[in-house]
Nucleic acid binder design. Sequence first.
DNA 1: AAGTGACC
DNA 2: TCCT
Length: 218
Amino acid sequence: MAQQEFALDASQPASTAPEWLDTGACVLRGHAAGHAVEMIGGIRRIARAAPFRRMPTPGGGMMSVAMTCCGAGGWCSDADGYRYVAHDPRTGQPWPPLPDMWRDLATHVAACAGYAGFVPDVCLINGYRPGARMGLHQDRGERLDAPVVSLSFGLPAIFQWGGLQRGDPLRRIPLLHGDVVVWGGPSRLVFHGIAPLRAGQHPVTGPCRYNLTFRRVW
DNA sequence: AAGTGACC
DNA sequence: TCCT
């Protein structure tokens, strides 16, 4: 039984070589799967102090993805725009600390992608329910000399990978439980997004997908 | 400006 | 294509 659960947990072997999307950007299949149960527990603990919330967008809409953060700051959206803030606007408290094990894993997978010495100071935690999506965007609010490390857990999603111009053609890349994406260098400002999540059940996360993105903001 | 955008 |  435990063996079978592990097989379901590890959607991909963790030892595969990087699949390069572009210069500086790759997918590491399954490299976080072995840490999934511990990390989902960490997400639940962080969410008790800094609850998941859907944020308003400057244009008057609402994000479909629920977010929380940990580390030295968190990403926030409201009517005034997008920015990183050192305190959770909802509680007034500092964001929960970035767990050492999370930081070490991000450093390790970044090194696997060719980014030695990456030390993130912020982790954004995105919670996707069926239908939730992330429109095409660039990650511009952080240091551009550091990569972004993205870990996927739970339900599969279609990652849209474009180019440096919004209108560039999109590649659709399935991201499964435990998959890692790293992008930096010449790919740091590539437009990317997530297609609307398809409903399903995952043995570790139930009806959800969690995406953890590690960045260097300060 | 990362939008269950809004509008054409 | 516009808007915030």
